[in-house]
């Protein structure tokens, strides 16, 4: 069964494609890295998957789940760090799907939040304001929230940027745990070492699909050189695409 299916998907901005004619599928329970140079369309693809962006053409099917059931960690989270809210409440947002507008956060839910915090190594941070967290602690907190979302499909946009190796290793452990629980995980990454060591499958994207399959077959010098040569800038004079 496939968790995600792309049928000739083109996504972009202002009629310019950022992901061009992508077709393929991601099996349920797969652990896939999406790599490619800056401007390759990784974030755009993820926005299409979670339904923030509607494709110009083609179709994305999500194996019957609603886009809102996907746990999504955007690259530039629009978090207002000056807002007076503590780490506990922030992580508890992950219970939205269960608690919704009015559901109470009782003893059981508090336990669940505590456990998530201890899993990411933030025990003792419950009542700290989010404005006092370091970059790595912030990312740990967001992973705790993802954990509570209990989603079948988890989409992580460059989750390990500007994160030290220890934090990165801890969070990767979580990714492996999700993989072990048969959840489908997609992550945009730049560190090929991390990809080779942790992700069985890779999609190499450079606006168009360069290669897609087993990581060892995708991350070859040839493919990477090809990806680097695809141009980054939109051509303002580009004609309408016939395909």
């Amino acid at each position: 069964m496939s968790a995600l299916q792309f049928r000739n998907v083109t996504l972009g901005y202002d009629r310019h494609p950022a992901v061009h004619h992508l077709s393929g599928e991601i099996a349920s329970g797969a652990l896939t890295a999406v790599v490619g140079p800056n401007g390759a369309g990784k974030s755009t693809l993820f926005k299409g998957i979670v339904g923030v962006l509607t494709p110009f053409s083609g179709e994305i099917s999500r194996g019957g789940i609603d886009p809102r059931e996907i746990a999504y960690l955007p690259q530039a989270a629009e978090i207002d760090r000056s807002f007076p809210i503590n780490v506990f409440d922030m992580v508890a947002m992950g219970l939205w799907r269960k608690a919704g507008l009015f559901g109470g956060i009782g003893t059981r839910e508090r336990d669940v939040v505590e456990r998530a915090l201890s899993t990411v190594g933030l025990t003792g941070f419950e009542s700290r304001g989010i404005g006092t967290l370091s970059g790595g602690q912030m990312q740990r907190m967001l992973f705790a929230r993802l954990l509570l979302q209990d989603a079948k499909l988890i989409v992580l946009d460059e989750p390990f940027n500007a994160i030290d190796t220890k934090t990165c290793a801890d969070l990767l452990e979580l990714v492996h745990r999700w993989h072990g629980e048969k959840r489908t995980v997609l992550a945009a990454l730049h560190d090929f070492e991390v990809v080779r060591a942790n992700f069985p499958d890779t999609l190499l994207l450079a606006r168009e699909q360069v290669a897609w399959g087993a990581t060892s077959k995708v991350l070859t010098p040839d493919n990477l050189a090809k990806a680097r040569h695809m141009c980054e800038a939109f051509d303002e004079e580009a004609a309408a695409c016939a395909a």
């Binding site: 809102r68 955007p74 989270a77 629009e78 207002d80 807002f83 939205w96 507008l101 009015f102």
Partner: peptide, 23 residues
């Protein structure tokens, strides 16, 4: 009181609210 929870989430992390709800 009724909209408190989504209102707070929309203030702190509007992207998150958009990803989990139409509220």
């Amino acid at each position: 009181a009724l909209i408190y929870r989504p209102l707070v989430i929309e203030c702190v992390d509007p992207g998150f609210l958009r990803s989990v709800s139409r509220a």
